[in-house]
């Protein structure tokens, strides 16, 4: 059955690069998140230890996870955009 796409997408030559970088970053973040869940679960008192700016580990780690997601997203986008421009050409990207 023929489907009608909302938009027609061109070939993305940077897809492989983006997928690889995305998986690496996902793996890194998952490990850090798993560490957070592990400490909360098996050593909750450790979360009360003061670490920086007068904050305890619970709050510091929580804020860190949120800010890390934002920073990783921006870095990921920077490299993906750079690679898209290089492999697909800026004009073609803009046409998409």
């Amino acid at each position: 059955m023929q489907q009608h796409e909302a938009v027609e997408l061109g070939e993305d030559k940077a897809a492989k690069f983006k997928s690889k970088v995305g998986l690496i970053l996902f793996g890194v973040y998952s490990l850090i998140y798993a560490g957070f869940v592990f400490i909360n679960t098996w050593s909750p008192k450790t979360m009360g230890v003061k670490v920086a700016f007068g904050l305890n580990l619970a709050v510091f780690y929580g804020f860190f996870l949120i800010i890390l997601a934002i920073v990783m997203g921006i870095v990921y986008n920077h490299y993906c955009t750079k690679m898209e421009n290089k492999l697909n050409g800026e004009e073609e990207e803009n046409k998409e």
């Binding site: 897809a15 983006k18 997928s19 995305g22 996902f26 709050v59 929580g62 996870l65 997601a69």
Partner: peptide
């Protein structure tokens, strides 16, 4: 606040794994 952290962390899966393939494959 643990809910806040879990809900936000889920967006990492969306960004690094799901977003572009979903756009490429879906209608």
């Amino acid at each position: 606040f643990l809910y806040s952290i879990g809900y936000l962390a889920g967006w990492i899966v969306a960004l690094f794994v799901i977003a572009e393939p979903m756009k490429r494959m879906g209608k």
